[in-house]
Design a protein around this nucleic acid. Structure first.
Lengths: 224, 224
DNA sequence: ACTTCATATGACCGGACGGTCACATGACTG
DNA sequence: CAGTCATGTGACCGTCCGGTCATATGAAGT
């Protein structure tokens, strides 16, 4: 958590620091990200940032927290209520997640940073809880879908959860590939534009359909 | 490529260096891996390793190359020939891949290192080609499956390829989770033992079945 | 005017890194 | 024996890092 000093700062300065730090942690892994670069680019003295945050980890966790809060707020506001059909529901989740990521430059940075969160070397209660929450959320969705009789029950819940997780985790790579863009440079304006031009609705529909019905040929699946 | 000097070394010493370097690059990302640690743990002088390899990148690429060669050899030797059914074939690929990874401690290190390859900061022709090859291999499998009428043709090949890639990429995390083990510490002997005790056949069968038939409830899928 | 106090600063610390180089070693050659 | 050559060595270089701290600044309070 930042110090009181940080919150006393004029908003403009606070913003500049957050923005610069976000860019740094979005571009580099936690270990690779450099406090020295941040202060240089934010135009403040090295010592100053240690008046605002206890250490590098404190700054990092604060940014993660901001990202989590922003995403939760967005989802609460934008996601349609639970639907009857699990797959429609999951599709909503993908759509709203993608919409969040594309909604603002700030959100793109959040997304980029969060995607690195899962391999962060930091062991922290808050971070662990966030990871568990997002996995548990999916697992709950799956169980609810099974209870509604929309999801097969002959394979372990964990397997299905893993599937959905894998699909979500790797999804941005797929988008980048379809758009013909380097996945690691997806936040650059011209690349983002290309991604935004994609027929996202179509892609999500296909994706969820494959999840629901598999990749086997329709005839084979539907014939007796 | 290593220098001639390196190949003139007594095999024992050469082995020690390879082994130590492998352990380092398996545990850390390219940037995080430390030449200083490698030479310390291998018991050679700092200057020596620069008699064997041009620089850090040269050493890294050589290890990647060794890993690739070993895996190709293993697959050529162990994988059954192409089957009639695409999904049986893909299952063979998963099984043989997992068998390779578990076959020897060296292979575990190879696997661990290779899994980090895809986010490596190194831009190199050889590395790029290896990434492309593994993706193209899957894409070819998919197209062949479509031609045999076993894979649906109403969604883009890229989407299906992305699915298979996602599943393969995230698979080791699933194994780790089911075994109750930290994914990043999966190479440690006691953890490996737990993974090996899993019913891998069953897991693969379920996995491929979900790929083929989807996660929708059977009744829903098979009813008219 | 004097004191207090929050805040700003950048030189500096110890340590790690990749990489170099002048020199040491020791086996083989004539 | 001297000379050559492949190989070994670790102190050292420049650079960056996260983090500290003595000092400076300047507004507010009296």
């Amino acid at each position: 958590m930042p110090t009181e000093t940080f919150f006393n700062l004029p908003e403009e300065k606070r913003e500049k620091i957050i923005q610069t730090a976000l860019e740094e942690f979005a571009q580099h892994s936690y270990a690779q990200a450099s406090i020295s670069r941040i202060v240089r680019r934010a135009g403040i003295a090295k010592g100053s940032i240690y008046q605002y945050f206890k250490d590098k980890k404190d700054l990092y966790l604060y940014l993660i927290q901001l990202a989590g809060e922003a995403k939760l707020r967005f989802i609460a506001q934008e996601k349609p209520g639970a639907r009857q059909d699990f797959f429609d529901d999951f599709r909503d989740l993908l759509v709203v997640g993608a919409r969040f990521n594309l909604a603002s430059p700030r959100n793109q940075l959040y997304a980029q940073m969060a995607s690195k969160m899962y391999t962060s070397p930091i062991r922290d209660e808050m971070l662990t809880k966030m990871k568990e929450m997002s996995e548990a959320y999916i697992a709950d969705l799956v169980r609810a879908g099974q209870e509604k009789g929309q999801i097969r029950t002959d394979v372990p819940v964990e397997l299905l959860t893993y599937f959905l997780n894998a699909v979500m985790t790797e999804f941005h790579r797929y988008l980048a590939k379809v758009a013909g863009v380097d996945p690691d440079r997806i936040v650059e304006p011209e690349n983002l534009e290309r991604v935004q031009r994609l027929d996202l609705e179509r892609i999500f529909t296909d994706l969820v359909d494959v999840l629901e019905n598999g990749m086997g040929r329709e005839d084979a699946r539907w014939s007796p």
